[in-house]
Design a protein around this nucleic acid. Structure first.
Lengths: 157, 157
DNA sequence: TCATAGTGATTGGTAATGCAAACCAACCTG
DNA sequence: CAGGTTGGTTTGCATTACCAATCACTATGA
């Protein structure tokens, strides 16, 4: 059934899942310290260098459109995001990050790096580079639906 | 401030965070198909080869003890877990996985491997092995609190 | 030994998250 | 321009998660 049902895949999946939970744990804790849920944190990360419409954002996050409304509303109420109307389509709502939101996510990113430093520091710089490169192929075509990005994507998804 | 404030760390953190979100997306979707939340899925994964008390489980997951009660109650209602009393301490409640729970998490693990196969398959077996090995140092001493494990931990955390 | 402090778990209250269904508004197609 | 589609919001519901308070049992010390 599985095309690569060997030990190397087992060990890899195991490591990926464990590292994912570890990273999520860090992000959850870090976000909580700033009253940000994981999803809100992610929204800010996505919008840091992009502007998306509600439905694109929903597709990106794998969430229902209706979920977005409340999510964006709360973030907007806190001044982290703003709603704007799309010039081309009067129905569409584009979500923009505010300066305050940008500052917050930037700060969180720095904090995240610092928290992960004890872990990443266990690798030599060449190893870090190698690890990042090995992860790349796993990320390129996302397994989950992503909206048509206007430009190549970089940074926290 | 950060001890390794270089490009290799930036790229690595970026890759780790993105892969984490990707993995979580897969697990969330997979779990949802079986009416399992991410946390429930994780609980099953943890208890697959272990038996823990409520508070240990809470510490492991980084959640409040009170959160566990409802979580375990729902899983118990579905027949995936059972509560038992600790022999040594009559206050303590140990949580055990049932055969049904074990079968479910095993099935999910297989499905997870299958879903991730297109991604992991982009790497050659040696690369997979190498990636798993590079991840290992990041995982060994967890950044978040973990309960005193009675025996070395393996498998989905 | 027995009162008291501490630990393990549950309960009740509140907020956030997420889905589904119903809905309105704007677009698009014939 | 009528009918269908798409983009968002609203409402209702279950789950998740926290905190504070509570109950049950354990452990401690006078």
């Amino acid at each position: 059934m599985a095309p690569d049902d060997d030990d190397s895949t087992d060990a890899l999946v195991d490591g990926l899942v464990r590292s994912a939970f570890q990273v999520m744990g860090v992000l959850t804790r870090l976000g909580a310290e700033h009253d940000l849920s994981l999803t809100q944190l992610r929204v800010l990360g996505i919008l840091r260098d992009r502007t998306l419409r509600m439905s694109d954002l929903a597709a990106f996050l794998g969430l229902d459109k209706s979920t977005m409304s409340g999510l964006i509303a709360r973030a907007e109420r806190r001044g982290l995001l703003t709603r704007g109307t799309s010039p081309g389509d009067k129905r569409a709502v584009v979500v923009l990050i505010t300066d305050e939101g940008r500052a917050l996510i930037q700060r969180l990113y720095e904090e995240g790096k610092a928290v992960l430093a004890p872990a990443t520091g266990r690798l030599a710089p060449e190893q870090r580079e190698q690890l990042a490169q090995l992860l790349e192929p796993l990320l390129s075509p996302p397994l989950l639906a992503a909206p048509r990005p206007e430009r190549p994507v970089r940074g926290m998804p």
